[in-house]
Design a protein around this nucleic acid. Sequence first.
DNA 1: CTAGTGACCATATTGTAATATAGTCACAAC
DNA 2: GTTGTGACTATATTACAATATGGTCACTAG
Lengths: 208, 208
Amino acid sequence: MYAIGMMKKTEPNVRGPSEHNVRDQIVNAAAEYFSRYGYEKTTVSDLAKAIGFSKAYIYKFFSTKQAIGEVICSNTLSAILQAVEEGVSDADSASESLRRVFRVIVETSSQLFFEDRKLYDIAASAATEEWQACTDYQESIKKIILDIVRQGRETGEFERKTPIDETVNAIYFVMLPYSNPLLLQHNLTIADQAPMVLSNLILRSLAP
Amino acid sequence: MYAIGMMKKTEPNVRGPSEHNVRDQIVNAAAEYFSRYGYEKTTVSDLAKAIGFSKAYIYKFFSTKQAIGEVICSNTLSAILQAVEEGVSDADSASESLRRVFRVIVETSSQLFFEDRKLYDIAASAATEEWQACTDYQESIKKIILDIVRQGRETGEFERKTPIDETVNAIYFVMLPYSNPLLLQHNLTIADQAPMVLSNLILRSLAP
DNA sequence: CTAGTGACCATATTGTAATATAGTCACAAC
DNA sequence: GTTGTGACTATATTACAATATGGTCACTAG
């Protein structure tokens, strides 16, 4: 078969060769259209026209429109995660890392979903229908939090009495309303104060 | 004029005598209909028919349908607050009070908005359009938290370094996604674990 | 075999005409 | 004065036909 890494191709709804020029063209067109006109307003025919093929040909590569959406969504969420990880790697303490995680998530998400690009409705669909990309994203955030808490505990920066799973879960719950676009939407008015205030609360709870 | 206490009659959109049999009949009918058929589905004519008067007469007492909704909403939120205050008064420490606030809010809200009664859509309208009753409710919750934190600080149960406003605000922000029906809706799946886990986090952050 | 498509179907979405609703007002009965 | 209403308007909602969209498939070209 094709040379496939340990990723891709495992997910269903992805057809045809995973390395293919046309697949990339579709994804690029989708990125453009979804962010400019929104996911719902963009039709598969639009994408087909944009790259000069027929609609039917698109379905040789993706089994559904949602499958295309998943890729865009996945890329977008990856971009957020990357920004988060960048912030974390620049931090010089676990506390600072946590602050940055919170701040960067809120900032980047607000920007991507509500300002720069019209990616809100794809994120909304993704969150409502619990696409794979979303649950993966939430898992990644949990893992980042876990790593930071671990590190903080090792350096003695954080307390060690509370079961680490509970600590991580609690922090995750606090951040959830700001990392899920469906919820963030309702919290936009406090999205500028929340990261600061809540980070402080979390860090107080982590004090040894 | 009428003998008016320091309340009622101050809010606009409330017409006619504030003590009046018919006003109560309207409110009772509304409570029944809104919780059975929902706020949006209930028409003002329905209420009129239910109490045997004409629709026009209703408008002698309430300037808009929303004004009726505000009363029902206000009563419902008052019921939640009462349950919360009951829980608090039964608690024997500030910590226990905080736990109960969180637990009772989630339990009572879930029940009222999503199980027992179909009050969700009135609460949703209220939250979306920021009715007075809602902002009052949120203020009340903030005040309850403030009182508990104050008490906890006095008894030495809680730390006193953090500015009390920030502490209260942070706790309030943590509870917000569970006290606002619009947000609670998306958190129903974790609504059983959240109060426990998040109360623990809050209490750890309050440790002296 | 691979690359690519027009024609097709079932369901979703839109436009629009018909209906229902929130809210007003002049007026009647007492 | 108070209690109460039918008739009215402007806007919102519904019902439904017309159209658009997601998705499939048999087929052609090389």
